[in-house]
Amino acid sequence: MALLDVENISARYGLFQALRGISLTAEEGETLAIVGANGAGKTTLLRAICGALPASEGRILFDGEDIAGQPASQLVQRGIAMVPEGRRLFPSLTVEDNLIIGSYPKRKGVWTKDKVYELFPELVKRRMNRGLDLSGGEQQMVAIGRALMSNPRLILMDEISLGLAPIVVNQIYRSLPDISAAGTTVLLVEQDLNRALSVSDHVTCLLEGHVELAGVSREIDRQALIDAYFGASQ
């Protein structure tokens, strides 16, 4: 049974329908990349899965149970963690406090503060700094570490390379295998198609709120993916 099974969900902002019947599945331990142009609905999809935005239709099965409609704060307890777009560290908290707050759901597992510092050694000397004093890359590391602190079964990452220099992006992506190694399922949104394909097992391309193309990352036809990304087939 898949860990995550999204069945035909829709979501709206007021009258604007941002998601229109999206389905996807993610097996335990795999990495699924979600790609799509700006405004395709990637962030909205992640927000619907983690409970930050209620889906107006459809079911979201997590570990076989329908979680649609449950608030985000409960879903974290069940093991769905989110690394939000734009990182969103708590500005008045130090790096260390930001990590500690990630352990608020009190879920047991391999991830502890020390493990996160091992994963991102750059953060050690920054532990007493406030979030806003950090570079973008360091902030992103804290945001990922903060999500890991809840020992999630499913981690959602929204554009973790946003606005970062290529070297820093590489550095951050190097942490992915360690995260997967703990058995965590990763769902990541990435604008860079090559990178998305190279780090994931499956890929799903969204276009204007629906799934335009989905497949196995290693086998997918690149041109078809690019067409789906830009909506060229329409």
Binding site: Y13, G14, L15, F16, R47, A52, L53
Partner: peptide
């Protein structure tokens, strides 16, 4: 117009 309305969330 609707686009000036704040998002609920």
């Amino acid at each position: 117009p609707a686009r000036f309305k704040a998002d609920e969330g």
